[in-house]
Amino acid sequence: MDLSAINPILLIASLMVSATPILLAAIGEMVTEKAGVLNLGVEGMMITGAVVGFAVGVNSGSPLLGFVGAALASALLSLSFGLLTQYLLSNQVATGLGLTLVGLGLSALIGKPYEGIKSPTLGDIHLPLLSDIPVIGPILFQHDIMVYLSIALVAAVWAVLKYTRIGLVLRAVGENHDAAHALGYKVIRIRLLAIMFGGACAGLGGAYLSLVRVPQWTEGMTAGAGWIALAIVVFASWKPWRVLVGAYLFGGVTVLQLNLQAAGLKVPVEYLSMSPYLITILVLVIISARGFHGAPASLGRSFHASS
């Protein structure tokens, strides 16, 4: 094995790319959960975003349009989850699983003609001056626009939740929906919007996978990324900046594992590719052993005005 083949600067730079899909999906899911809704369909929305983003990107020749299409499609898909759980009061866990199964089937159906095609690429933006700084420049300032956008999104979510009235209402709905209802807030409408925001973010994350990270469409390509995003929300104790840390830690593990494979570590490839999932479990165990802090009090509970 040749460890010198691993370039630490490239490693950290590719860490940010590899973490971006999960970061986008996780920050969206965090907002949904802050409103008190547990949407387990992240994987399904992500893969739908991946295929729609790829299809739009290929057909229009513009990856940016692909991202827009992916966000719209996944938000629409998440709306079906919203209607079921908010108006028809179905069980959120079961409906989320259903959403994942529907998303996997739908994406395989849409994606069939797009297998083996290359997508148009999203150019890297070299921020003037900043990108010329040695070491830090290539790590932080030579990425594509979605990497910056995902970080900006985390900052925006943090600011909105902490400092604005909308954020306060959203948190109130998630903590105690009966009290929020009594105060005259439209619990169901707010939750629907939060669900659709989560869907749009998951769609962006999926599209980032198929348009930038891989960049190709293959069936089932998210390979559990949506579930890992769910785990990262728990890991982050529902705090935006910790979502960023969690996603980057996870991205680091993935990239390191791929680099070790390439460097020819004497461990079979299959065992290395288990590592992200095993580490997710490990992290979940550590977090839960410490006790859950910050989970919205109404998380996963259906709201019905009469009860």
Binding site: A94, G98, L101, V102, G105, A108, L109, K112
Partner: peptide
């Protein structure tokens, strides 16, 4: 083949 998978998912929904 994927349309059957979708059909099964729809059934649950």
């Amino acid at each position: 083949g994927a349309s059957i998978q979708l059909l099964q998912g729809m059934l649950l929904f």
